[in-house]
Structure formats: C-alpha cells, structure tokens
C-alpha cells in the first residue's frame, strides 16, 4: 500500500517557489499561476526525502529584524574589509578562532555560518563533525574572546530565539 503523502509538506518552500516562478516569468497570467502552482507542489514532494527535519520559525517578526541587522552589517563589513585591503602598511592580525555553538539544529547553524561569513572580518571555515564547534578565520582581530562574545550576543542569541527558543 502506498503511504499517504501530505501534499504540502513545506508550505513556506512552496510559497517561495511560486513567487520566484512568477517573478521569473514577469507575468501574472492564469497559465503562469497554474504552472507555478504545479511546480510548487511537486518539487517539495519530490525533495522531501532529502530534508531531515523541518526548521520551525517560532517568531517571524524577529527574523525580519535579524535580516535588516545583517543587511546593515554587510555594508559595514565591506567598508571595513576594503579599508584593510587598501591599507598600504598591511597591518593585519589574522587568527583562527574556535567558536563554541549553542545552536543544535542544522538549519539555524547554516544561517549562522552564512551570517558570520558575510559580516565583519570573519569567514566560517569548518563545522566539526560533532556539530559543536565552528572554525572561524578572522582577518583582523585583537581580542579573540571579545569576538566570540560579540558573535554570540549579536547573531546567535536572536537565532536561538527565532528557531529554538
């Protein structure tokens, strides 16, 4: 017997696919809605075995705030890195930092790692297999503990509240 499938296993992903399809086609004709809708239902059903666990967003409003904070930080990060690259004396204090994670699920960890890469002076380099430490390479850092504390306060705590609370 074929096990029953829930036809909308990932509603957010389905909505996203539909919106992206309509944006790509640049039209809101009925045909595009139908085609996009079929794709939006079929693709999540096919992809379902690849997703181990669904991320649950507990506080969507905080996610929006987080998004804008990261957007602002990206601009700051770029100005900072540009300054470091253009500095003729080349004074840099590179360091490998081991960051202890408190997040548990893989999706929030992915977001945290991407955020760390896009924000000032740090690139996430390696997630250890035990899933508890993230290896970060920093371009110019004075106090390593201050950096870890900063990342924890600024990015990890909001993510913890949004996804796991």
């Amino acid at each position: 017997m074929i096990p029953p499938i829930r036809w909308l296993p990932m509603p957010v992903l389905s909505l996203l696919l539909l919106v992206v399809w309509l944006l790509l086609q640049q039209s809101v004709a009925l045909g595009q809605w139908i085609l996009g809708g079929v794709l939006a239902i079929l693709i999540p059903v096919i992809c379902r075995p690849f997703w181990e666990r669904q991320p649950t967003i507990k506080r969507p409003l905080k996610l929006v705030g987080y998004f804008f904070r990261v957007l602002g930080d990206i601009v700051t990060a770029n100005l900072q890195v540009s300054k470091l690259i253009l500095d003729p004396r080349g004074r840099m204090r590179p360091a490998f930092v081991e960051y202890p994670l408190t997040l548990k699920e893989s999706f929030p960890i992915t977001i945290l790692a991407s955020t760390i890469t896009m924000t000032p002076g740090t690139v996430s380099a390696h997630l250890r297999l035990d899933g508890k430490t993230l290896l970060i390479h920093a371009l110019d850092v004075g106090d390593i503990n201050a950096l870890i504390d900063d990342i924890h306060q600024r990015y990890e705590r909001p993510l913890l509240e949004i996804f796991e609370s």
Binding site: R93, P94, A95, F96, V97, V123, S124, A125, H137, I144
Partner: peptide, 21 residues
C-alpha cells in the same frame, strides 16, 4: 566560501605565520 575554506583545510594549506590559533 565555506566549501573553499574546507577544501583548503583539507589540503592543509599553510596559513600566514602571523596567524594565531
């Protein structure tokens, strides 16, 4: 960027001598 850093670590590329950690 993450994948590139991972493959660089896998190949054990030498970091700059000033690098701490």
């Amino acid at each position: 960027a993450h994948m590139l850093a991972k493959s660089a670590l896998h190949h054990k590329l030498k970091p700059d001598p000033r690098t701490r950690g």
